[in-house]
Each structure stands twice: as structure tokens, then as C-alpha cells.
Amino acid sequence: MSSGKPIFEEYGIYIFLIALFAVSSLLSPAFLTIENLRNIFTPAASLGMVAVGQTFVILIGGGALDLSVASVMATVTVIVSMNTHGQDALLFPVSLLCILFGIVVGLTNGFLVTKRGVQPFIATLGMMVIIQGLRFLYTKGAPKGTFPPFLRLLGTGNIGPMPISVLSFAFLLVLAAIVLKKTIFGRKIYATGGNIKAALISGYNTDLIIISTYAISGFTAAIGGLYLAGWLGISDNWVGEGYEVDSIAAVIMGGTSFEGGKGGVIGTTAGVLIIATLYNLVLLLHLPLQLQYIVKGGAIILATSFYARKAAY
């Protein structure tokens, strides 16, 4: 009876992902085509980048999360379009500025959580609103400018059959997995998330670790925003809207717990793919909007409950 349970606990998310792909292929002949898979994976790469950073934050535990990521993405988009004026020559310095912006936002979030004791939900929600306000001040509500061709290439181009954005995400994913699993810093994150008191007793600077995870989240949000801007090609004040919730859902679906200390970026990637696939499938099935919401929400709950570890009461 119990022999099957650990398999679902360990691999449930991947089994669900495979099942979702299989069902999607049966439901829509358009699903399993190279072009459609590119349509799913290319914007999913941006969500994946954001979700990787979100994983670092959630691993810290204690209800840690980052609601400011979508706001960072949108702000990065307008910074690039309004400062590069569509010129490749300016892309590199402006991108560095964007990344710096993301990191500063993350550091501020981390500072508020650790040094001021603000709940992560409130700290990052407040930051999200502040950035929105700053963005509206900066753009006066209607961003101008265009994106450099090289950024468009990063967002929409392919190397062979693979979208460049997906390859970039894969690189980031591998890097994040190595940091989490193979470095002392990674072990400190898991230790802090597993038991913060024990981590403190062990001499870890937990505040620094927590601040670092928020900085990483800000960094990946900025990178994700750059790629999403390249994919979209239009400067808009709300690029990435909803990514804060989607990235958190992907992380939790992928097996990282709000309690912290367990999970990782590979599971998160599966969560991202499930969300991106669902968003694509409801459109391929031509469902009316109301049904789209029901199917997407229902499938996310189903995916999580499919393999969820039962709490020991």
C-alpha cells in the first residue's frame, strides 16, 4: 500500500507534467508541434528565471516570498526601452543598470525582513506598490522608446531548434542548482530554511543569507524582465503582470515548501512548465474566459494535491 507513496512524493510533479503533456496532445492536435512548444517555452523561460529566484527566497522558510518580482520586471522593461532608444550599443550598460536595480530592490526587501522585522508578505507587497508608483512617475504612465535588435534576438531568436531564451534559462537553472546543492552558501540556505535557530547556533549569519536570497530574486526578476521585453517587443507598463503569483505557484507546485529548507529549482522548473502548458492549453481548446480560469486553477490544485505530503497530525 505504502510502496507507491514515496514515488508520488518524490516524482509526482514530473508524473503530472508528463500526464499533462499527454492529455494536452490528445485534446489538441496543435499542442505537440515544434512551433507551439516554442510558444510555450519562450515566455516560460522568463517565468522560469523569476521562479528560480523565488525558489531561493521561499527556501528560507517562515513564509518568505517575493511579491515585488513582477514590478521589477515591468520597470526593467521601461528602463531598457526608454534608455537604449533601440540601440544595441547602449544595451549592455542599460542592462547592467537594470540588473543593479533588481538587486537593490532585493537588498531592500531583505533588509526590511531581517533588520526591521517586517513580514515578507508586507515588505515585498509594499515594495511592489512603491516600484509601481516610481515607474508611473518615471514613464508618466505611457512608456516610450523601443528595444534594441539584440534584445529582440535574445527574446525571440533560436539557436537551431532551441529558443535562445530557453538556453539562457537552462544556463541559469544549472548555475542555481549548483549553488544550492554544491556550495556552502547553498547548504546555508537549506540550513537556515530547515531550522533558523540551529543555523544561528552553528554560527551562520542568517540575516546575510536571507538578504542574499532576496537579492538573487531581484537579480533573476531583472533578467527575466529583460528576456520578456525582448520577446514582447513593445514597451508596456505592465509587462510580467501576474508573474509574482505564477512564480510562487510554480515554486510551491515544484515541491518547495513555505516552511523552507526543502525543495529546489528542478521541481520549480516542472511547476513553471505546468503553468505555461496550462495557459497555452486553455487557449488551444478555445475555452471561454470563465472556463479558462476554472481549468487553470483546478489543475494547479490538482497538481499539488496529487503528490502532496500529508501532514502528520
Binding site: F31, E35, N36, N39, P43, L232, D236, E241, N280, L283
Partner: peptide
């Protein structure tokens, strides 16, 4: 963004 996403799915 949604215009592009929705149209991509319709094209598929």
C-alpha cells in the same frame, strides 16, 4: 503581452 500570447495559440 496577452494579445501576442492569445494570437500565438490561435495561429497554432
Amino acid at each position: 503581452t496577452e494579445g501576442k500570447t492569445v494570437m500565438q495559440a490561435m495561429v497554432q
